[in-house]
Design a protein around this nucleic acid. Structure first.
Lengths: 344, 344
DNA sequence: CATTTGATTTATAACGTTGTAACGACGTTG
DNA sequence: CAACGTCGTTACAACGTTATAAATCAAATG
């Protein structure tokens, strides 16, 4: 059996092993490892050299334990939502830039938000970033009493005590989509909505007000939909069954839009020639070469940055209460599923 | 500003706060909290009561620091791969059942495997479970010298020292798919392969040998593909451009199969009436109501259980070297994209 | 009644790290 | 020459927990 480390007793090397090896004191070795100012260039050199040799790696748990600040932000995300994947990636970057680390805790069919949050708290996170949390507002408030909590993409009706909200301007996104379609010449624009999903109400509102703004109030038409391909497919079938079809569809999100596209495709209705389709989220689905969905981008990197900076502000005392809800402007990404209508 | 905790000084309650509140010593409180045997029912009751009152929550970092065993398994996964999401979910369950916790570290476009592993090591994980790692075998061996490493779904040609492998029997999966198609009456079955992706070689081999077994050696046909929808779409276009089309396609994975389906759909080729399509992975994509893809299931829960039990065996000394490669049998999930061919 | 037994409880010392304060050596200054 | 900073280094204590061993106590034994 091969030795598992460079130190005799087989355990993983500690600061004191490192200090011994470099011939310096433990605190000095510590200062070098954490890049504190103080140690001379010579000492620094020797310690780093020794660290290399014995394969020393700081123990983050001991670190966090010792320093009152843990510089750790807990992130709760849902494994089933591709948009969350984008957000997690962006959060790694945003947190890193702000000098924080993130701890992930996943939610899935077999793992509740409750469990996810429990483990984050046990890990001594200083703040929580929750991606579209479903927990009741009361529960969020309860958490916020313990530590800063940022809800991303989930709007909280009455601003809940201590809970910050970072979200995209869903209404503005829907408006942009409608503007784009109208500019192309569309008038019969249907919205397949997301029911009670977070953001759905705003998107609905944005759609309606944009239609009104263009003098198309009488063409407003909502079809019940949802978050998944299946919902989109069902809604599309509803539309197909009718005599007068719309010339454009604004779906609740990309998933839903894909379901719509697929159904149209099966029904031999060419997109965008016969009907234009717009999605929402700019998830990777929309970018696929054979999909090339026109969609409203939520700018995950921006949302992530704002969420982190919000949490950090709370932690470091720079929080101003007038920014309890941060709204990021989305932007339309025009690809190949929208086009001037052939009939009007 | 509301108080952030039930303890006066605003910090989060510790064991000694708890002990003080319950009127017992710190060690006793500790024993109660970790469910050790010893404390009397009365003490246990009082401590739990007090914990409830002050909202005490054990600090897992301090716990891990103190006890030499951390009971923490690090999991590296890729945010872009839906199959990994299934695996992570299953790993939570499997690790929990074995008395371990898992720490997640994600890989993405902007976060390398190197970074992911670094943080896991800094977190004092006792073992690493890597989901289809791309790191060179030498690097894995280096890691394995420090702690038990399990590679899931990535086969290592020469069994690398100390690295355990848990994977699905990709060749067997491909064989099942071919058997199914042949049983339906197909003979011209094409395989769109995954190039150099982990598992691709095995699937290719399984396909070929199954074809041979059915006396269809002369019908063997490989089309270069890949892991994404775009790869599948490209391969499908290649097939469409030809005079003699196959009656069935076995795609490298579900993503690839979706690309194939979509391309056929656009070309007005009915699936499964004209061509049958089989995927691989049984990811949630395959289960969508409007897709209903026949596919080869990798049994994430099983893979997860085996991976965890392998890691635990190494940690607890029950590792037997004859099980360094665990192969789980996949199973075919028949949905609606396969059917008896109309022409033969 | 002294004494052993067993069940509970507690004191003490770690785990690996970092913050604080103190230390020594050096050249500067009054 | 003494007092003074400055720089680099170190000793010590602490973070919140748990393992070990020692201490306490009631009950049971002789």
């Amino acid at each position: 059996m091969p030795s598992r480390s460079a130190v005799p007793d087989g355990k993983r090397p500690t600061l004191s092993d490192l200090a011994a090896r470099a011939g310096v004191s433990v605190p000095l070795a510590s200062m070098v490892m954490r890049g504190a100012k103080g140690p001379s260039a010579a000492s620094r050199e020797r310690v780093l050299q020794a660290a290399q040799e014995i394969g020393y790696r700081p123990d983050s748990r001991a670190r966090l334990l010792r320093s009152s600040r843990s510089h750790l932000v807990g992130v709760q995300f849902d494994l089933r939502q591709p948009f969350h994947a984008d957000m997690v990636e962006a959060l790694y970057a945003a947190a890193g830039a702000a000098g924080y680390q993130i701890a992930l805790s996943a939610v899935a069919a077999s793992r509740s938000e409750q469990e996810a949050v429990e483990t984050l708290l046990a890990d001594r996170c200083e703040a929580l970033i929750l991606l579209s949390p479903h927990a009741p507002a009361a529960r969020l408030a309860e958490l916020a009493a313990q530590l800063p909590v940022v809800s991303v993409a989930r709007r909280l009706r009455p601003l809940t005590d201590g809970v910050d909200v970072v979200r995209a301007a869903d209404d503005e996104g829907a408006r942009q989509a409608v503007d784009h379609l109208v500019a192309l010449g569309h008038r019969d624009i249907v919205h397949i909505d997301g029911g009670r999903a977070p953001g759905a109400a705003d998107r609905r509102r944005g759609y309606k007000s944009a239609m009104k703004h263009h003098g198309l109030t009488d063409r407003v038409r909502l079809v019940p939909g949802g978050l998944t391909e299946d919902h989109g497919a069902a809604a599309a079938r509803t539309l197909l069954a009718e005599a007068a079809r719309p010339t454009a569809v604004l779906a609740f999100n990309d998933h839903c839009a894909i379901g719509v596209l697929d159904t149209f495709l099966r029904a031999r209705i060419p997109v965008p020639d016969e009907i234009s389709v717009v999605g929402f989220d700019d998830s990777h689905l929309a970018r696929l070469a054979h999909v090339q969905l026109t969609t409203v981008g939520q700018a995950a990197p921006q949302l992530a940055r704002r969420a982190v900076s919000r949490a950090v502000a709370r932690l470091e005392g720079g929080a101003t209460d007038d920014e309890r809800e941060v709204v990021v402007t989305p932007h339309l990404v025009i690809r190949s599923t929208t086009k001037t209508p052939c009939r009007s």
